[in-house]
Amino acid sequence: MPSYDVMPDVQLYQPAELEDALNLLDEHKNDGWLLGGGQDTYGWLKDRAKNPKALIDVNGISALKGIRPVDGGLEIGAATTLREIIRDPVVNSDYALLAQAAGRVASPQIRNVGTLGGNLVQDARCWYYRRGLACYRAGGNICYADSPEGMNREHALFNASRCVAVSPSDTATALAALDATMVVASVDGTRELPADRFFAGPATHITRMTTLEPGEMLTAVRIPARWAGKRFYFEKVADRDVWDFALVSIAVAMDVDGATIGESRFVCGGVACTPYRLTDVERAVRGKALSDDTGDQAAALASKGARALNYNHFKIPLMENLVRRAIRV
């Protein structure tokens, strides 16, 4: 399959106002492509695996940038870079889970320009799909990864439906654990939806990773005060510490009173097409002490219902161990 180093002809728009960007997006519903840092985008174009006609660069829109307090929580503009998030004092003091997850994305240079919006909306990293094969996710009727010969070491344990690709975004996992809501805009207005209705699995949306409709844009992420300053745990296991996507990651937020766990959120990345919430674990640890014993009990519940593929069984003990480590004192 040919590989190209240059990008194909495309038009580039650099609007300064959100309204203009939304109008452009509406005009180019079928062939438009929002451009944040471009770090997910350029590979698609260079490989000719996606062929948008118009890039709409959102980096010049000041309304989409910055981190501001809202209702006791925080609102982060979709065009804010991961670099800014990692270095923000409030994110670090109150929502360190997000700073840690963002700090594990890709490499310093990619974090310097990659936007939160782009990180959340980035497409699946399944290599069959990225190389432009006509699999289910690309609108075809076969999955190359979930086949007898398929290489599926990186693929899903849960909620697969024809497609077994996983959510690639590190910030998505953290934001799901923080009960974040997504602010979405189009020429028709604005809507807000919780993270678990923003990320979409293959059973409902096999050709996209989110419920964003054509013409819609993520404008901001709102993090409620609910988990501010709570006990957090983030860990990402990848082949290399730089560049590589999570094989499995875990983002945890919990109320802890003394050594007793209260309400919590346990969310894994790299195991399903969306951030995968471990509700059984959350229920099991409630009222228990932070300890190795609690960790052992909860770990067994973490992978309940997992359906391993040919090469990804290793993710099951990995998940279980990450749960254990999150509960250790």
Partner: peptide, 12 residues
Amino acid sequence: VTNYSCSTLTQS
């Protein structure tokens, strides 16, 4: 700030 120039549009 460091950037990968292979992944930066000159227009930007």
